[in-house]
């Protein structure tokens, strides 16, 4: 049983990070029906910028805040300079723009910062907690906590605030939303800003556990995307459940099956979902209106 809990803790920690990344995918998808493949780069910016701001002598908490803000600025820039001018381009065209943006950001990070690995100190120590014989790092608790708080905040934002409702309206029907006076362009912009912040937050939280690097966003972005697909693109709850499902499936596969095939697990899961259940666990069934 001990090992089961050990695998579960590993899966939950990694899964919560995937969930934060998946939330970014869902937010942007909701606002613009666009899949932003630069999402992983926000994670990289979160980690790398914190490291380099801290190295420049800024207090760590402030460095983390600045890093999140930097990711927001980059996300807004992608939307303003990449997505907005390409209005009317096909969905595939827009996706390619985001892939281009991701490659650009990665390249710039490698030049402006560096190509080395960097770590951050954990928020509250490295002394592991022992639960049911399995060990859990305090950093994992921080990750669970922050993910839960973010989930609640997002729920509140979408269910209770006018801005959130405007974003939901845009997600359901952009044209109708525009007709009732919602500035849908701003909605897309805000979704990018939020996605940037979420990604960067994931980057700040994971860096004490797994070092950051200018290319760290590639795999994390893909795993987050897988989580978003499994949960159902556009669903907040789905993103979180999807993240945890992928994280736990990977950990269990590594623990009970062959660890050599662990990486394949996430991708096998996406394939199964895309073929058998394309709308995901909590996604809306895609309806084509004529």
């Amino acid at each position: 049983m001990t090992e089961f809990f050990q695998f579960l803790f590993s899966g939950l920690t990694v899964g919560a990070i995937y969930a934060l990344i998946a939330l970014g995918f869902s937010l942007i998808y909701n606002a613009s029906h666009l899949i932003n493949f630069a999402q992983g780069e926000f994670v990289m910016i979160g980690g790398m910028a914190t490291v380099f701001f801290a190295a420049a002598g800024i207090e760590l908490p402030l460095a983390a805040v600045l890093a999140v803000l930097l990711a927001v600025v980059v996300a807004v820039a992608i939307e303003r300079l990449g997505i907005a001018p390409a209005k009317g381009t096909s969905a595939v065209g827009l996706i390619i723009i985001t892939i281009g943006a991701a490659i650009l950001i990665r390249g710039l990070a490698g030049i402006v910062w560096d190509r080395n690995f960097h770590s951050l100190p954990p928020i509250s120590g490295e002394e592991p907690l022992v639960i049911m014989g399995a060990t859990l790092l305090p950093q994992s608790l921080w990750i669970f906590g922050v993910t839960a708080v973010i989930a609640l905040l997002l729920w509140f934002f979408f269910a209770k605030t006018l801005w959130g409702k405007a974003m939901m309206a845009t997600a359901y029907n952009p044209l109708a939303a525009q007709l009732v006076g919602i500035d849908t362009r701003k909605v897309v912009l805000v979704s990018f800003a939020l996605a940037g912040a979420l990604g960067a937050l994931a980057g700040v939280l994971i860096t004490p556990l797994a070092p950051t690097h200018f290319q760290v966003g590639v795999m994390l972005g893909l795993k987050g995307f897988a989580a978003a697909i499994v949960g159902g693109l556009g669903s907040g709850l789905g993103a979180i459940v999807g993240g945890l499902v992928i994280g736990i499936a990977e950990a269990m596969a590594a623990g009970y099956l062959s660890s050599a095939y662990k990486d394949a697990v996430a991708f096998v899961i996406i394939l199964l979902f895309l073929v058998l259940w394309p709308s995901g666990l909590f996604g809306l069934r895609g309806i084509e209106r004529v």
Partner: peptide, 16 residues
């Protein structure tokens, strides 16, 4: 035991 590219946690492998 093996881990994959970009993995962030190897506790399952080390537990084994």
């Amino acid at each position: 035991e093996q881990y994959g590219k970009g993995d962030t946690d190897m506790t399952p492998q080390l537990t084994k």
